[in-house]
Amino acid sequence: MQLIKAVQQEHRVLALWEDGIAEEFPTIWLLHACTCERCGLSIKGVRQQRLTDYPPRPVIKGISVHGDTLHITWEDEHKSAYPGKWLRGHRLSESGRFERRPIPYVWGADLKLPDFVSYEVVANDLFANLQMLESIRDRGFALLCDIPTELSMTEEIPAIIGKRRETNYGIYELKAKAEPEITGDMAVELTPHTDEMYRIDPPGITLFHVVVQSPIGGESSLVDGLRLAERLGQENPDALRTLCKIPARFHRELDEGRHFDIQAPIFRQDANGIITGIRLNDRCMAPVDATPTDTERFYDALRPLLDIIYAKDETIQFKIDAGQMLIFNNHRLLHGRSSFDSASSRHVRIVHVDLDEFHSRLRVSLREAGREDEWMHLGPGATA
């Protein structure tokens, strides 16, 4: 959409586009956004100007629009240019900022399971890969098939999402073990939970590569944390507010002499009060650290949330066979598993990609595909 006019109004500039959209930009914001040789590029980390070098309300000497570009000459003869497309993508009004926020598809037990997509296709086709990335962004997960079961593939696959994250587990070998490290190493049912919630920044995107599946049991389950928040807010809004405010406490001590302990709300909100993530695993939850009154409020609020989860009426369940993969947002979805035959050789390998690495890959892919939403605002997930 073409930028057609710009008008100076005190210490702001009113930009107008041909479809009637009008937007105000403060002059201090415009000067901060300048990418001329004198100012440098903040996106490359080579900006020369300090913000304190600018006056609080920079004064414009001249302003014009030519060829969908806003041109400004400042009081000190410094010249700046701003593409209309870039300004449109960075509107500061409530409506403009809202347009940059992806709207997640919130789902419950009635979700129709998406199709499995061939790994070779998403690994070699930009648009198929972008479709998978957007599925993870919007729905919280994606399903892949036609994956070789060689163990080396587990290390290669994360590259289609972003750079692999190294955790204390490395590539975790999830199978029934005589001496289990975690509950997942037992053949028992796992109730829905998020992984490594005892970290300030839990693993973002989790990849389950199924090498061998059990003929009996071993079905995967997923629950949308945003749906849990939505439903709890409808049925018990006080409980939701409490779980957004009073921090839970999660801890884990590992055999190699490492001790994690974090306090963070179960539901994470961004600066606008929008819920962006969930962290919850009652197997790793320590007694809450709060005043007696807040302690009682916390447990009273937690109970209805757990009741919804344990009732399984917001849960989808499906089986992932050998050569298939489940990729999901660990900051948004709770995952679980049904019990399986302990005598089977069921083997799942688990790797992770940080949430910001996933967001990076998504932005780059959008730009390469010529999409105009690469400037979208992506939330902080469940980061403390």
Rank of each mutant, 00 (worst) to 15 (best):
9 Q>D: 13
9 Q>E: 13
9 Q>F: 08
10 E>Y: 12
10 E>C: 10
10 E>Q: 15
11 H>E: 11
11 H>M: 07
11 H>V: 01
11 H>F: 14
12 R>Q: 14
14 L>S: 08
14 L>Q: 12
14 L>K: 11
14 L>E: 14
16 L>V: 13
16 L>K: 11
16 L>A: 13
17 W>Q: 03
17 W>I: 04
18 E>K: 06
19 D>T: 13
19 D>E: 15
19 D>Y: 10
21 I>L: 15
21 I>D: 04
22 A>R: 14
22 A>Q: 15
22 A>P: 04
22 A>W: 07
22 A>F: 05
23 E>L: 07
24 E>H: 12
24 E>C: 12
25 F>E: 06
25 F>C: 07
25 F>Y: 15
26 P>S: 13
26 P>V: 10
26 P>G: 14
27 T>D: 14
28 I>S: 14
29 W>N: 07
29 W>L: 07
29 W>D: 07
30 L>Q: 06
30 L>S: 06
30 L>G: 05
31 L>Y: 02
31 L>D: 02
32 H>R: 15
32 H>P: 00
33 A>H: 09
33 A>S: 10
34 C>E: 01
34 C>V: 00
34 C>A: 01
34 C>P: 00
35 T>I: 03
35 T>P: 01
37 E>D: 15
37 E>L: 11
38 R>N: 08
38 R>C: 03
38 R>D: 04
39 C>Q: 00
39 C>G: 01
39 C>H: 03
40 G>S: 09
40 G>Y: 03
42 S>A: 08
42 S>C: 00
44 K>D: 07
44 K>V: 07
45 G>I: 05
46 V>P: 02
46 V>C: 08
47 R>Q: 07
47 R>N: 04
48 Q>F: 08
48 Q>D: 11
49 Q>E: 00
50 R>G: 10
50 R>I: 03
51 L>I: 12
52 T>S: 13
52 T>M: 06
52 T>N: 06
52 T>D: 11
53 D>C: 09
53 D>A: 11
54 Y>S: 13
54 Y>R: 12
55 P>F: 11
55 P>C: 04
56 P>S: 14
57 R>K: 15
58 P>K: 08
58 P>V: 12
58 P>T: 13
59 V>Q: 14
59 V>G: 05
61 K>M: 14
61 K>T: 09
63 I>L: 15
63 I>N: 10
64 S>M: 08
64 S>Y: 08
64 S>V: 06
65 V>M: 09
65 V>W: 04
65 V>K: 05
66 H>A: 14
67 G>S: 12
67 G>M: 05
68 D>G: 01
68 D>C: 02
68 D>A: 03
69 T>Q: 10
69 T>C: 09
70 L>Y: 03
71 H>T: 04
72 I>L: 09
72 I>D: 01
73 T>D: 04
74 W>F: 02
74 W>N: 00
75 E>N: 11
75 E>P: 02
75 E>W: 05
76 D>V: 02
77 E>K: 10
77 E>T: 12
78 H>Q: 03
78 H>W: 01
79 K>N: 06
79 K>W: 05
80 S>F: 04
